[in-house]
Amino acid sequence: MKLPLRLPLVPDLPEPGSVWGLLAEFDDVDTVLAAAEKVRNAGFERWDVHSPIPIHGLDEAMGIRPTWIPVGVLAGGVVGAAAGLGLQWATNAFDYPFLISGKPFFGLPVAIPVTFELTILLAALGAVGGLFVACGWPQLHHPLFSSERFARASSDRYFISIEAADPRFDPTKTAWLLEDAGATQVEEVRA
């Protein structure tokens, strides 16, 4: 499991004007799926596939490892449960014990609903927060947006982008690889 290195508020953007990476355009799903397998087999780490529709089998083709977000959800849930129980015990039984209709100061059954709600709440926040961290949000601009072709990634074209920061990146050889894999266009994207 690899933790994300990018923190949300400090995006590691390259120097303005430097090469950010390559963007390859594909016409159809089958080609981009096969191309993704080639990029994966070539050992690239910092790359992505962009598609207007969900593609079955893309996760395997890209070799995407299981995400660490569930751990964040579990952590949120555990903290929520502990906070829910702790809050009720601290306020009712420890800090200000007050007898209400003969009930115990700290009765577990009656403490469960609040504990349950806080567990759900913090687990959900763990999922959303984890997603933000994993995606490097908030990120107001991305170098890929400077490509005019890239707009079609949300309508009728498929793209593979490979970052220059990848250790295996080579401006010429990586472009050949993408063209070999059936890309109709390969362009350099500058930051």
Partner: peptide, 10 residues
Amino acid sequence: AFSQYMLYWY
């Protein structure tokens, strides 16, 4: 099960 129990307990 808990919803049933808690109301009677309370």
